[in-house]
Amino acid sequence: MLGFAARRLAQSIPVLVGISVVTWALMAASPDDPARIYANQQAVGGRAEPAEIEQARELLGLTGSPVEQYVRWARRALSGDLGESFRTGQPVTTEIVDRLPATLELAGGAVLVTLLLGLPLGVIAAVWANRWPDHVARLVALIGGAVPAFWLSLLLIWLFAVEWRWLPSNGRGGLDHLVLPALALGAAAAGGYVRLLRASLLETLGEDYVVAARARGLRGSAVLVRHALRNALIPVVSQLGVTVGVLLSGSVVVEVIFSWPGIGRYAVDSIARRDLPALQGFVLFSALVYLGASLAVDLAYRWLDPRVGRRGAER
């Protein structure tokens, strides 16, 4: 297991290098000269002198060959220095860390929504396979996958905040502020769990040990929970990595709509203001979280289902 973890970590090193190159290129390969963007933003009246632009180029580390620039950037990035925001002059790392709790809170709420919707519907669909509860569950999953998070957000605001005035629709605060954005963000990911759990539960329900447990006279619900569901949930773990990507992506629009002060809204503000270091910070952070999640999922999967390793060895 430890050897597998080490190997898996080593495999992700080239990917990490690739991620850093892409992130670096977002500024270095920008069609508009970043030094000019920065100098113009700093200049009184918004138009910088050529000398000021050259000064900015120096300051942003955009001098020398691309390889030199990348190495300089990567060395600083490794020590946690992603440069300063064009807008505020504050370190990008600090700005992202400051906004992280808000995004984590939203993501946590959304994961809860996803699992609370997806898992029960998946179980219902499998237990009553091809009967009406199954059809309803799958229809919900289908519609959930087709409704964009940004439209669901607007619908939720309209119904729960405007028409019925039950919940606030703006900003971060108590638990009541979390409900609507978490619903909007979490609902989209639930469909995948319904499909996956239905398929995997149908498979385990047909396995010999489940049939044997039934034959021994165990009650249906006991068989379901203790024998079938436990094993059926293992493949579901693999879906968690996908979910992290869905949540990272969805949080951008959802945070903008609900004025949620997290890193997604930070990214959109950065684009609107051409704040390239801030955008780089957001992209790098998202990729690292995504990569970390897929690593964690691989390790958890292997730990939960030892058969995976043997299957992998055969390849």
């Binding site: 690739g18 950065s270 992209v283 990729a287 990569l291």
Partner: peptide, 23 residues
């Protein structure tokens, strides 16, 4: 390896970032 790197980013976020750079 190029594919691995592109897929290391959540698709929407990488597309968003590229848009942000291109304008």
């Amino acid at each position: 390896r190029v594919v691995d790197v592109v897929l290391a980013f959540p698709s929407f976020i990488l597309a968003l970032a590229i848009t942000g750079v291109l304008g």
